[in-house]
Design a protein around this nucleic acid. Sequence first.
DNA 1: CTCATTACTTACATTTTTGTGTGCCTCTTA
DNA 2: TAAGAGGCACACAAAAATGTAAGTAATGAG
Lengths: 121, 121
Amino acid sequence: MSKRKITSTNNINREKLIDFCGMMYAIDLLGGRWKLIILYKLEKRTLRFSELKKIIPGITDRMLTLHLQELERDGLVERTVYAEVPPRVDYRLTGSAQSLIPIWQQLEHWGVAHKKSWETG
Amino acid sequence: MSKRKITSTNNINREKLIDFCGMMYAIDLLGGRWKLIILYKLEKRTLRFSELKKIIPGITDRMLTLHLQELERDGLVERTVYAEVPPRVDYRLTGSAQSLIPIWQQLEHWGVAHKKSWETG
DNA sequence: CTCATTACTTACATTTTTGTGTGCCTCTTA
DNA sequence: TAAGAGGCACACAAAAATGTAAGTAATGAG
C-alpha cells in the first residue's frame, strides 16, 4: 500500500483500467484487505480510531491508519480531529460512501449465496 | 496469484474475513487486476481465449490464463474445450456470475459518478 | 517524577500479485 | 522443410500489499 512506482507496467495497466472503467475504479477503492469492513463498521455510526481497532479483530494500528488514510483521500470517509489530550479522532462515511451501502449489501448477499451454492456443489 | 503460504498472517487474516463476511468473499473473487473486465467482456457472449486477448488491451497470455483459471475455479466462468487442432477453448459466464451483472453495473455507475464528483471537488 | 493514554509514524521483513520471456504440442498450409 | 496457429506451462524478476516492532507527542493522574 501507498508506495507505487508510477512507471511500472503494473501501475500503467492499473491506471488505464481505472480510467476507462468505473467498475475497476470502484474495485480499486474498495479492494484493500480491510476497507470494506471499515466502511461497514461505519455504516451505523461515527467511530473513533480506537473503537474501530477494537471491533475489527486482527487489524493492526498501521493497517488501520493506512486504510483510513486512503479512504479519506478517496472521499469515502471524513476525519474529525478534536483538540484534546490524549488525542481524539473520529471517522464517518461521506455521502458518496453512503450511496454505496446498497451495493455492498447486495455484494454481501450475493457472496453468501454464491459461497453456499458453490460449497455444496 | 496462485501461490499462497497458508500459515502466513496475511492469509489467515484473509481467510477469517472471507469467512465471516460475504462482501469480502465477493471482493476476493473479483479483485484481481483483470477479473472484472474479463467478466464484463463475457457479459454479452461466449468468447475464446484469443478473442479475449484481442479485446482486452494490455493483458498478457499469462495473466489471462491465471485469471481465467481462478474464475473457473471459483465458479464464475465455464470453460469448454473443443477437440480441434489448433486448439479451441471458449469461456462463458456461469449462472452465478450472471446474477452478479446488475451489481457490477451499479458499481460501474457509482464509480463513474464518484470519480466525476470527486475530481471536480 | 513516572506512567498511562491515543492516534499515529518510521524502518524493516515477509507475502502476494503482476509481468517478462521462452518453450511445447499437434496438426495444417505454404 | 519450415513455419504458424492456439492455448497454454515454466522459471524468473519486479512491484505492491501486508505485517512486525518500536517509537513519538502532549498532558493529566498518581
